[in-house]
């Protein structure tokens, strides 16, 4: 029982928020892409690109905000490869995603080796050159919420703000309606005068921007350098959260919190509780399989996902 209070406490919730942040951004990103009909398993690679770019640019500019913007730009650029291959060349979206994941195992190491003479990591940044901790005025004065929600990196608040914003965009704007239409029934959307190509580009590039930002959080928020393969499967967990949350922004957000708290618990359990960390680590994946098998409701993907759109002549 003495384990219990060392593990389950307010700071656990704070670390849940921190650990969920990159997942939330990547999962919401994946949502824009997949709602538009482009399957995006490249989230992992895009996050790696964002994480590396953020760290490398910050090393040269000594300004994490420029690093952050560069990471978003890198995410957009990488997702542009995905978009062009999937939309223009009608390549298999899963294969393209896989190629991008492999590409960004290699590229950061290659560039890092050339720039910093170390393929393993970028040079560590001094603390003042990473993103600052933000104390939120109003929440900072409420006892319990202060512990959980205040004093995080700016990207945490961006991620939290993106959840209602994404809900609004997806379900309350014309853009969202069109994006969903293109993902469900591109023929009908096309007939109604919606540009299938344009909407799909928008979806994929948005996913790149958000996943890139999620990557930046890892290298210049949570840490102060980029290390090889530092995403460690987070892009895939985000994908799992997206499915677990049934492609809905609030659902995906809750799934990310769930996976984030599982991660936080597994970190705290190390060396404290005699339950192997591996058991906790596989929980998100097992849960996703259970959902996919239809035991907890049914996860139905957007109908036209994965299919290139060929205009009828």
């Amino acid at each position: 029982m003495e384990y219990f209070t060392t593990i389950i406490n307010l700071s656990l919730l704070a670390s849940m928020v921190r650990l969920s942040t990159p997942l939330i951004l990547a999962a919401l990103g994946g949502m824009y892409s997949e709602r538009g009909g482009i399957i995006n398993i490249a989230l992992e690679g895009i996050m790696l690109a964002g994480a590396f770019t953020a760290a490398a640019v910050t090393v040269f500019t000594a300004n994490p905000w420029i690093g952050l913007i560069a990471a978003v730009a890198a995410g957009v650029l990488v997702s542009l490869i995905h978009a062009v291959a999937s939309i223009e060349f009608k390549a298999d979206q899963v294969v393209v995603g896989m190629a991008i994941n492999i590409l960004f195992i290699g590229v950061p190491a290659l560039v890092s080796g050339a720039l910093f003479e170390s393929t393993g990591s970028t040079p560590p940044l001094p603390r003042e050159q990473t993103l600052p901790d933000w104390n939120i005025p109003l929440i900072g004065s409420i006892p319990v919420l202060r512990e959980i929600l205040s004093g995080h990196k700016p990207i945490v608040y961006m991620a939290l703000a993106m959840v209602p914003l994404s809900y609004y965009i997806l379900f309350r704007t014309r853009f969202g309606l069109r994006l969903r239409a293109v993902g469900e029934n591109p023929e009908a959307a096309d007939t109604a005068g919606v540009s299938v190509r344009g909407m799909r580009y928008a979806g994929v590039l948005l996913s790149g921007a958000l996943a890139g930002l999620g990557g930046a959080y890892l290298s210049i928020g949570q840490n102060s350098l980029f290390t090889r393969n530092m995403t460690a499967g987070r892009g895939f967990i985000a994908l799992a959260a997206l499915i677990f949350g049934k492609w809905h922004p609030v659902g995906a957000f809750l799934a990310c919190l769930l996976f984030g708290v599982a991660d936080a618990i597994s970190i705290r359990m190390q060396g404290v509780v005699p339950v192997p960390v591996q058991v906790i680590q596989i929980i998100p994946y097992v849960l996703t399989l259970v959902v996919l098998a239809g035991f907890i409701g049914r996860a139905t993907p957007p109908r036209a996902i994965g299919t290139p759109y060929v205009k009828e002549k």
């Binding site: 009608k90 393209v96 896989m98 190629a99 492999i102 590229v107 050339a114 290139p308």
Partner: peptide, 29 residues
């Protein structure tokens, strides 16, 4: 002097991208 063995990984990824985009092989459809 400056190329690490990761070049090989990058090359493999580029090969996949090119083959996937080639259109001669469209599993997607």
């Amino acid at each position: 002097d400056r190329v690490s063995k990761d070049w090989v990984v990058v090359l493999q990824a580029i090969i996949i991208l090119f083959v996937a985009c080639g259109g001669a092989f469209r599993v997607g459809a």
